[in-house]
Design a protein around this nucleic acid. Structure first.
Lengths: 192, 192
DNA sequence: GCATCCAAACCTACTAGTAGGTAGTCTACC
DNA sequence: GGTAGACTACCTACTAGTAGGTTTGGATGC
């Protein structure tokens, strides 16, 4: 099992990536935030690539878990997407990792090491596939109404949420994130 | 008037920012790409902040010019938005600065110097206002159909385009950008 | 109960290399 | 002869990463 310190290092890395991207933080920054020495981070994560890959793997595992939990606990597919969006609205509002780190890392993707690129791609693939499955489930139950193929609608939904995070950060406005995503959810709601 | 070298430095900076973000490139990288020495860049742009601010100012000036040109040369508002999207589709396809640098910098905004944050915000404000005005113009001429307020629709449009750039980069697919934006334009087209 | 051993965790002190930035010099041209 | 633009040579601060020693907290043997 992963030690407490390793977890704290990983969580701090997540915080920094969400705030600054891959090149925007150093082992020294993490060492100071966690309250240990730089060399101790290397003990847990030999290289920066190892640390970021571990962070992304944990991040994706949490997504898979949360999505699975929604799937089995919330019967209404539209409601599942609403809860997904609501989660991010909370993050934006509280300025607590208000951006998906996979989306942020994707922005600087060509400059990132191959192993990290792979993890970022896996996150996008999974996220889109979950949204697509949820949309399809909604269509099947007459709970969601689509104007396009589930594939394109899922891609659009993911892109819109990521874009909304970025706009919210640019303009320092939680309101922007909530209004954009609210209107997106309204659009796929069946008109009774 | 700005010297040829200064322009080349600025253009190269734009390339690097679009590829790697603010922290992902150095004066040494630019010096090598342009074919001069590091110190010569400092002659034209004393600090990295100066360089990036100048790059963003030029970028915004180009946007204002292009938008003004569309406004006066293309009467059809929906067509203006189509051409805007098409411009980006070309960039994505040719891998030529395939991401809006304001959107990319916005992702790492909290870590950026104040002067750069200001320029990023100005870009977003202008872009949303132009899209909003174009949407309103389309509604007035029965050329565009909106389900929400022009403000929210403009915010959503900008967010969707930025998110589509990021998804395209993540999955290495031009196709994703075009299909997402195409469906967005279809949605605001009046159903005859 | 207590010495011994071991490994994980953490440390200090260091490396080579790179970051942004500066001082001062040379050259070409109006 | 002044200025723009480029240069060499340098600075300090920081980067990721390493070498090697110290502390810590069990498990084991007697």
């Amino acid at each position: 099992m992963e030690s407490n310190t390793a977890t704290r290092i990983r969580e701090t890395a997540h915080d920094f990536i969400a705030e600054r991207g891959y090149f925007g933080f150093s082992y020294a920054d993490i060492a100071e935030a966690v309250g240990i020495r730089k060399a101790s981070i290397h003990h847990h994560f030999p290289s920066k690539v190892d640390l970021v890959v571990a962070t992304l793997m944990e991040y994706r595992a949490k997504l898979v878990e949360a999505a699975g939990s929604l799937d089995s606990n919330v019967t209404d597919p539209l409601q599942r997407l609403k809860l997904y969006v609501q989660h991010w609205a909370e993050c934006v509002k509280n300025n607590n990792r208000p951006i998906c780190i996979a989306a942020l890392l994707s922005a600087e993707l060509p400059a990132l090491p191959e192993e990290i690129q792979t993890e970022v791609r896996l996150h996008f693939t999974y996220l889109v596939s979950w949204v697509k499955a949820t949309l399809k489930d909604g269509v099947r139950h007459n709970n969601i109404h689509l104007q396009n193929s589930a594939e394109v609608e899922a891609q659009s939904f993911v892109a819109l949420v990521h874009g909304a995070m970025i706009s919210a950060r640019a303009l320092g406005s939680t309101e922007i994130f909530t209004s954009i995503t609210k209107s997106a959810l309204e659009r796929i709601r069946p008109s009774v």
